[in-house]
């Protein structure tokens, strides 16, 4: 049971904060979606939570342990990150890529052992990428690459998983597959999941809670029904928005009408 918490955290680049005094909590088994306009700092938030950029003030903790005090390997045993599947070194096989998820458990000089290999293969089986194990990742489709990266994060065996726009370049079916997989993993493995997404309708369907960012701050956090309301969204995105019940499942369907 690992709880990811931001405590009044401010962070950004070159001493200019992108997000200020952010406080939020993500619970085990929960998928928290982070939404907001381009440039609001969704990816920056993932970078801060994975120790890539330092905090100006506040802290980020996992079960009250400050991630800023951890070594890279310690932190990577708590937090795995699924990046966008772009610029992968394409000649590595999918299995090689997934095996790199074992990095935080291996010394620089230590090779992977059979157990690491087994863990990697299990992660690939779970993400339906086992058939791709021998293929160079550069030859895989965007959706397949994204699933390989999720397998890599799974192989990292970390209780917290951060995903940065994992559906950005995927078609409808692959968006659906990837997010369903994330949902299932959160429940099965009791993962604490934070995911940044653009598509508010995917957010509405796949997330347990939503954090809406605007102007360097957390504007609202809560259930999709509460956060995805026309007034707040119109304010944040600066366009007219209507929200109607989705004809298939009744969750909020966000429509922009320009």
């Amino acid at each position: 049971m690992k709880i990811l918490e931001f405590h009044q955290a401010s962070f950004g680049y070159n001493k200019v904060p992108v997000l200020r005094n952010l406080s939020l909590t993500v619970h085990p088994g929960e998928v928290l979606a982070v939404v907001g306009p381009n440039g609001v700092g969704k990816s920056t938030l993932v970078k801060a939570a994975s120790g890539i950029i330092p905090l100006f003030n506040g802290k980020i903790t996992i079960n009250d342990q400050d991630i800023g005090q951890m070594t890279d390997a310690e932190r990577a045993r708590y937090i795995s990150v699924v990046p966008q599947a772009t610029h992968l070194p394409g000649a590595f096989s999918a299995l090689d890529v997934v095996l790199m998820g074992r990095t935080p458990y291996l010394g620089w000089l230590e090779p992977e052992n059979e157990r690491d290999r087994l863990i990697a293969l299990q992660a690939m089986e779970r993400t339906h990428t086992i058939d791709l194990a021998d293929r160079p990742v550069g030859e895989l489709s965007g959706g397949e690459q994204q699933c390989v990266l999720i397998a890599r994060a799974l192989a990292q065996a970390a209780p917290v998983m951060l995903l940065d726009e994992p559906t950005a370049h995927l078609d409808l079916r692959h968006q659906d597959n990837v997010l369903k997989l994330v949902r299932e993993l959160a429940i099965e493995n009791n993962l604490t999941v934070l995911i940044t997404l653009h598509d508010l309708n995917l957010v509405s369907y796949f997330s347990d809670r939503v954090a809406l960012l605007s102007n360097g701050k957390l504007k609202k956090i809560g259930l999709p029904d509460e956060v995805l309301n026309p007034d707040d969204l119109a304010q944040v995105y600066g366009i007219h928005i209507r929200v109607v019940p989705h004809p298939f499942h009744g969750k909020p369907l966000v429509l922009a009408n320009g």
Binding site: K47, G51, T71, V81, P83
Partner: peptide, 12 residues
């Protein structure tokens, strides 16, 4: 995989 991913994978 680049500095950022390598660090996120636990490499110093």
């Amino acid at each position: 995989f680049g500095d950022i991913q390598a660090k996120q994978l636990g490499l110093n």
